[in-house]
Computed example of a mutant assay.
Amino acid sequence: MDWSEIIARSEKSFWGLLGLRMLSADSKLVELGLTVNESHLNSMGIVHGGVLSSMMDQAMGTLVTAIKNGSQGVTTHLNVNFLSAMRSGELIASAYPLHETHRTMTLRSEVRGEDGTLACISTATFRLPRDSK
């Protein structure tokens, strides 16, 4: 799969607005990076939960695309648990497959800080397109 075309399109979307970077992607693991800046923080000076949730959702969506050879899915359910506050530095979102049916895929994700601190975890279900193989 040619990720360069997908990433180029993504740079103009929410992915680009957040400042996400593709670190690695295959059908078993996707890793995305983000350098925290002031625009990622909430009024308490910690990374906004929406940023962390979006990172995990994007990592899992990218994994669906990797598993399905370019076909994309749509998030139908996202469950997030926040564990540790993040304030600065590099964040890495990792996504792993859990279960797949004919029309859905369930995945898990986590975000860790550069020191390995676990910021949050999530699971999500994605609806697959009808022609997905």
Results as ranks from 00 to 15, higher is better:
L32H: 02
I92Q: 08
R21W: 00
L83W: 07
M56Q: 04
D26T: 10
A66Q: 12
S10E: 12
T101G: 09
S39V: 09
S13N: 07
R127N: 07
G33K: 05
G33F: 06
A93G: 09
I7S: 04
H48S: 05
R21A: 06
R112A: 09
I121C: 02
V80C: 08
R127P: 00
G73S: 10
S39N: 07
R87P: 04
L98Y: 05
A8S: 15
S132R: 01
E5R: 09
M60K: 05
I67S: 03
I121Q: 11
C120G: 13
S84H: 15
E5L: 12
M105T: 12
G73F: 10
L17C: 00
K12L: 10
E110K: 15
R130C: 00
E11S: 06
M55T: 00
G45L: 09
V51C: 11
E114C: 09
F126K: 03
K12Y: 01
T101K: 07
V111A: 05
L63C: 07
G116Y: 11
M22E: 07
D57H: 02
L23W: 02
N79R: 08
R87W: 04
L41M: 04
R21Y: 01
V36R: 02
M1P: 12
T62I: 06
Q58I: 10
M86W: 03
A66C: 12
W3Y: 15
L20M: 10
L32R: 02
Y96L: 13
T117D: 08
L118G: 03
G73L: 11
Q72W: 02
D2W: 03
L83T: 06
V47G: 00
S84E: 14
T76R: 05
G89R: 13
